[in-house]
Simulated assay, not measured.
Amino acid sequence: MYTVGQLSKLTGVSVRTLHYYEKLGLLEPDRNTGNQYRSYSENEILRLQKIAVLKQMHFKLSEIKVILDNGEVAHHDTAVWSRALTQQMVFVKQEQEKLQAVEHLLFSTLYAMRATEQVNIEEMLGFIRELEQPPQGPQLRQQAFTPEELEVLPINDVSNPLAMGWSDILRRVSGLLAEPPDSEASQQLAASIIEYADKMFDGNEQLIQKYWEYITPQEGQAARVYGMTDEVMQYIDAIIRIYLGEDDPRA
């Protein structure tokens, strides 16, 4: 058992905060019938530990109380502590996935603005819609790629400075769509795309091809990756095939 002062000193949680948690019913310390001094059991330490984790995950105190009220009593039971910590890890994992989804949405919006050099209100509306209804992209990628491949896919690392670089290439593509695929400008672009892909996929040509096939929209479908419409992908495919000598533009 710990006094309120001892618990405050050991956890870094102020005495005032501990009193406030008690007032809200988050903590229920024992009271000495003689002097009314508070004493905190192991069960209260477990509850305080849960509160600390859930607060970091931005749960409101009222929400935390509901979670705690559905909990268990500890009494030195390692199984209870294990279940509690495992449940918290599940909570943390879920929050991480939500935050990663938001991170990808933010990145995609910045990416689109950089590629087009304008703010697209429809994209912003789509952003809001996807926040309310999480996109299916992660599930689709898990079906298409092995865990090892997913680890190195550029889409999984928005912190990679190369990831935003594709928006610059897309902007160049949009300005050259009317150019013949064998023109000097188109072939310079093809060289840039090949160099970029080699860096992004660390020279893994098999994964490059697999990813290209994955993002290619089926007939009548919208682009799977922003800006990669059927027209854009056909143009890119054409200029690269010529650059690699696979197609003769004079044929």
Rank of each mutant, 00 (worst) to 15 (best):
Gly165Met: 10
Val119Cys: 06
Met124Pro: 04
Met1Tyr: 03
Ser82Asn: 04
Arg241Leu: 14
Asp182His: 06
Gln133Ser: 03
Gln133Ala: 07
Tyr111Ser: 02
Ala163Gly: 05
Phe59Pro: 10
Asn70Pro: 08
Gln100Ser: 02
Leu24Ser: 04
Leu68Gly: 04
Phe107Arg: 08
Ser167Thr: 05
Leu150Gln: 07
Pro161Gln: 08
Pro147Lys: 03
Lys210Glu: 11
Leu110Gly: 03
Ile194Glu: 15
Ile128Asp: 14
Gln133Thr: 04
His75Arg: 12
Arg250Ile: 10
Lys50Gln: 15
Pro147Asp: 09
Leu105Lys: 11
Leu7Ser: 11
Thr33His: 13
Leu162Asp: 15
Gln209Ile: 06
Asp247Phe: 11
Met89Asp: 13
Asp77Val: 12
Asn43Phe: 05
Ala191Cys: 06
Thr146Glu: 04
Pro135Ser: 13
Val225Pro: 07
Leu99Glu: 12
Tyr214Pro: 03
Lys23Pro: 00
Ser62Phe: 06
Asp198Met: 14
Tyr21Asn: 03
Gln118Thr: 13
Gly34Arg: 05
Gln94Val: 05
Gln188Asn: 02
Leu27Phe: 09
Glu63Thr: 12
Thr86Cys: 12
Ala163Thr: 14
Gly245Pro: 09
Val13Gln: 09
Gly126His: 04
Gln118Ile: 06
Ser108Asp: 10
Tyr226Asp: 02
Glu95Val: 12
Asp247Tyr: 12
Arg16Phe: 02
His104Ile: 13
Lys9Pro: 03
Met124Asn: 08
Tyr21Leu: 13
Ile128Val: 11
Gln139Lys: 02
Glu148Trp: 09
Asp247Ile: 15
Phe145Cys: 01
Gln187Arg: 09
Ala222Leu: 09
Gly220Asn: 06
Leu27Ala: 13
Phe145Gln: 01
Pro249Asp: 01
Thr33Gly: 10
Gln218His: 11
Asp168Ser: 12
His75Ile: 13
Gln206Lys: 14
Leu106Thr: 04
Lys65Thr: 12
Arg241Ala: 15
Val102Tyr: 00
Pro217Ile: 01
Met124Lys: 07
Phe145Ser: 03
Gln88Lys: 11
Leu170Asp: 07
Gly175Asn: 09
Arg31Trp: 02
Ile155Asp: 14
Gln218Ser: 08
Ala112Lys: 00
Asp230Cys: 10
Lys9Asn: 14
Ser8Thr: 12
Ala251Arg: 15
Leu150Glu: 14
Tyr37Thr: 05
Leu46Ile: 11
Glu149Met: 02
Gln206His: 15
Arg141Ala: 11
Ile128Glu: 09
Glu195Ser: 12
Leu131Phe: 11
Tyr37Gly: 04
Thr116Ile: 05
